[in-house]
Nucleic acid binder design. Sequence first.
DNA 1: GCTAGACTATGACGGCCGTTATAGCCAGTG
DNA 2: CACTGGCTATAACGGCCGTCATAGTCTAGC
Lengths: 195, 195
Amino acid sequence: MSKPSPTARERIVAGAADMISRRGLNATSIREMAKHAKAPLGSTYHYFPDGKQQLATEAVRFTGAWVARSLRKELAAGPVAGLLAFLDLWRGIVVDTDFRAGCPVLAVSIEEPPVDETPAALLAAAEVFEEWEGLLAGSLREHGAEPEQAAQLATLVVAAVEGTVAMCRAKRSTEPLDRTAEQLRALIETAIGKR
Amino acid sequence: MSKPSPTARERIVAGAADMISRRGLNATSIREMAKHAKAPLGSTYHYFPDGKQQLATEAVRFTGAWVARSLRKELAAGPVAGLLAFLDLWRGIVVDTDFRAGCPVLAVSIEEPPVDETPAALLAAAEVFEEWEGLLAGSLREHGAEPEQAAQLATLVVAAVEGTVAMCRAKRSTEPLDRTAEQLRALIETAIGKR
DNA sequence: GCTAGACTATGACGGCCGTTATAGCCAGTG
DNA sequence: CACTGGCTATAACGGCCGTCATAGTCTAGC
């Protein structure tokens, strides 16, 4: 019992992240999110008074923090270890869900915002990408990469992994992840001057 | 008048591709697709008797063929030229739509399929990715890359570009595309032994 | 025990969804 | 001219949507 059982609020956020990662934001209804978390519909508007946007925003941040935690931990062993952890994390999600789930941050990123304002969830998605890139770029710099090279490579890694996960879902195969992993691993090893 | 004015059917397919690339499949209604193409709702079910799935499938194939055409043409000048054309094509879409549209193939790829079958549109998305990868890989092999290296690199390029486009939308900036472009260009030049 | 405040239960609101059915128009062929 | 077949127009079907309102239940602190 080192971990307290999650509150209803936490269950809703985690469940929302899962459902958004499967169907996208617009296609996920608040009723389904509530049911998925075994919470009453009224509770979602109690915990998230700003409605769907707030819930989506928290789901994005929840996923962002979860991945960043894993990334931070594994990057202690170097950029290649971090990359492999990043890849394995997404590979696990894709395989465990039989190619039905992906990344909720990506899902939120590709929904058209209204003309007049930028939704909070989209801003959160941008921040999450920025955080992941920052972690990778920092580790690359620490291991000898030039700052600009590190920034470019970090962006490439995040983008490639996100895109690869989507391709794996379409093809119902992990082969794209295998190929991307090999290329990125070699690229990082070169960038940090491993020989 | 070298090009005949598009038929209503073509307008619907092209419009559907555009709308799916903005909002995702589930969030795009048939009524809106019809209105966007200035076609009556009844016509969509006349031209596409199998409904939304058929329309989505044709939209994916339409985009796939359009991109493949551009890719084939530019790859004649070598893999780097092909990469730059691929990047510029998506950059144009993202910029021209003020970061509101992306790739409809990616959008279709990240929608959860029903438990019992795989939707036609998802199969089409997998085929389109395969086609783009094949074109790139073929050009890389022709310019001296090892077959396995070519296949891996082609997958990385497609995945990275798709992911980068999504990141650009979230950040409302083309900087991710600039970074990814630089990294991929260098990578391809190395792979084909340019010096 | 009592009360305040956190949470739940329930139902309603207008609105859009995918799909189907049916009747009408209107070109082109004979 | 009639008429056929491609296309349109219109309405309807059941169903789910996001959101809000209201009344009920439960628990913690006095």
